[in-house]
Design a protein around this nucleic acid. Structure first.
Lengths: 255, 255
DNA sequence: AGCCTAACGGCACTACGTGCCATTAGCAAG
DNA sequence: CTTGCTAATGGCACGTAGTGCCGTTAGGCT
C-alpha cells in the first residue's frame, strides 16, 4: 500500500551514445575535483555519484572501479593506434611508425589540457592511481611491441621479439617522459618539438639496419672522416617529417 | 565466567627476523597454491591465513594487501641495486652498470624457480596481479632512471633526463622479456646467455656518444609564406643532436 | 618467579564491487 | 493518444578487502 517509490530517477541520459559520453565526463570531472579537494581515499564513490547527480550503482555501470574514473578512454586510443599501423606506409621505418602511433596519446592529453593536468597531479600523489596509470601505459606498450615484432620479423630479424619489446618500452618511455615534463609545466611548455626530439633519440638508437631509403635531403659526400649532409626544407614542413627525411638521408650515407 | 578465551594462538614466530621470513614464505606459498587451485578472486584472505595457520589479521600485518602476497621482496632487490651502483667503477659505461644491476632481479627469480614459475602462471592469467607486477617493474625502472640520469648528466648530456628514462625502460624491458621467456619454458631454457644478448642490444643502442660535436644549423630566412631552413652537418653528428639543432632553428624562425 | 614488550587473534566498521529486482523514461507501433 | 517493450537507473543486500582497537598471552629479561 504505502510502497514509497524508490525515488524519481534523474533523466535517462544513457540511452544515446552522446549522453553516455557526457555522463562519463561529468563523473570524471566530479571525481577529479573531489579527489583533489578531499583526497582520493577520503572520497567515496557515493560522493562522486551524488556530485554527478546519479546513483552509486550507476557509477559502477560507467566505470568498473573507482580508480578507473580518471582514466577515460584508453580503449579508443589503442583502437586508433591500430588504425595508424594499418594505414602506415610499409616501407617506413617500423620504429617511426610506432612513434607516430604513440604520439596519438600525446594528442589526447593535449586535447584535454584541463583534465590532463589535474589527473597528473593525482597520479603523482596517489600510489593507487600511479600504479593504474603504469598499467595503462603497459597496455599501449604491448600493442606497440606486437606491431614492432611483426615488422621486425618481416625484416628477418632473428631477435625480433626481444628487439620489439625493448624498442616498444623505449618509445613508451620517451612519450611518457615528454608528457610528464609537459604536464609538470602545466601545459605551457612547447611539446611537439620535445616529443620529436625524444622520439629521435629512440629512432636513432633502434634504427633498422636495412640500409637506405630514398631521401629528399641530399647528401654531399666527401671521403674524409666525416661526410657532410645539407638539408633544405621549409618551415612549413612538420618537424617529424623533417626528422624522417634527415634520418633517412643520414642512413643513406651509410652512417 | 564462561569467557571462552578467544583462541589458543599459534606459536609466536614473528619475534625473530628468521621467524618472520619463514612465516612470510609460508603465507606466500599457501596463497599461490590456493590461487592456482581455486582462482585468485575466489580465494579469500581468510582461507590463506587459515592455510598458513594464522589469523586473518596477522596476514595483513605481513602483507599490506592480498595482491602483495605473491610478490615477496622487491624492497630488498631495490636496495641491492643501489649497492651495485655505489660499488660500480665510475669509468664503466652507465648503461652497462644498469644492466648489471637489473640482472639481480634475474638472480632472485632463478634462486626461487618453484615460486617464480607459479607466480608467472598467475601474473599471466589474473589482470590484478599482472598490473601489480607491472607497477613493481616500474619501481625498478625508476631506480635505474635516476642512476642513469646522474651519470648522463656528468657527461654533460643536455638530454640526460630523457635519455635516462628511455634507456632505463629499454633495460627493464630487456630484462623482463628474457625473464618471461625463461619462465614460459618452466625454467628449462638457458638464461644467462639470452640475458647477455638482450642487454647487448640495449648497450649497443645507447652507447655513449662523447665523440662528435654538434654542427650549427643556420636558418636562412626569407620573408615569404614559407621560410627556408638550411642545415649543414656532418654524418658524425648524432641524429638527436641534428634534431635538436633543426628544431631550435625552426623554432627560432618563428615557426 | 614475576614483569614487559609486542605478536597475535578477534571484533567491529567502512567502503568497494556485484547480483538482483522493481521502477520507469524513452521510444515504437497501433 | 494509448499501449507495450526495452533498457537505463536506483535501491537493496551481500561478500570481502583493509583497518583501528583492544584483550590475550607467548617469549625474553631481570
Amino acid at each position: 500500500m504505502t510502497d514509497l517509490p524508490r525515488r524519481a530517477p534523474a533523466t535517462r541520459v544513457g540511452t544515446t551514445p552522446a549522453g553516455r559520453r557526457q555522463l562519463r565526463r561529468t563523473l570524471t570531472t566530479a571525481a577529479i575535483d573531489l579527489f583533489l579537494a578531499n583526497g582520493y581515499e577520503a572520497t567515496t564513490v557515493d560522493e562522486i555519484a551524488a556530485a554527478a547527480g546519479v546513483g552509486r550503482r550507476t557509477f559502477f555501470r560507467y566505470f568498473g572501479a573507482k580508480e578507473d574514473v580518471i582514466f577515460a578512454n584508453h580503449d579508443e586510443i589503442v583502437a586508433e593506434m591500430e588504425l595508424v599501423f594499418d594505414a602506415a606506409d610499409p616501407a617506413r621505418e617500423p620504429v617511426e611508425v610506432a612513434c607516430a602511433a604513440v604520439g596519438l596519446v600525446l594528442d589526447y592529453y593535449v586535447a584535454d589540457l584541463e583534465i590532463s593536468v589535474k589527473r597528473f597531479a593525482l597520479t603523482r600523489t596517489v600510489p593507487t592511481l600511479r600504479d593504474k596509470e603504469v598499467a595503462t601505459v603497459d597496455r599501449y606498450q604491448r600493442v606497440l611491441a606486437r606491431y614492432l615484432q611483426r615488422r621486425f620479423a618481416e625484416q628477418d630479424d632473428e631477435l625480433a621479439g626481444t628487439r620489439a619489446a625493448i624498442a616498444a618500452a623505449a618509445i613508451a618511455a620517451a612519450n611518457n617522459h615528454v608528457l610528464r615534463r609537459w604536464l609538470r609545466s602545466g601545459g605551457k611548455d612547447e611539446i611537439a618539438g620535445s616529443a620529436e626530439q625524444a622520439f629521435a633519440l629512440v629512432i636513432d638508437a633502434f634504427r633498422g639496419r636495412d640500409s637506405s631509403r630514398p631521401a629528399a635531403a641530399a647528401t654531399g659526400s666527401g671521403d674524409g672522416a666525416a661526410d657532410t649532409v645539407v638539408a633544405v626544407m621549409t618551415t612549413a614542413t612538420p618537424l617529424h617529417e623533417v626528422v624522417r627525411q634527415v634520418s633517412a638521408a643520414l642512413r643513406g650515407a651509410d652512417r
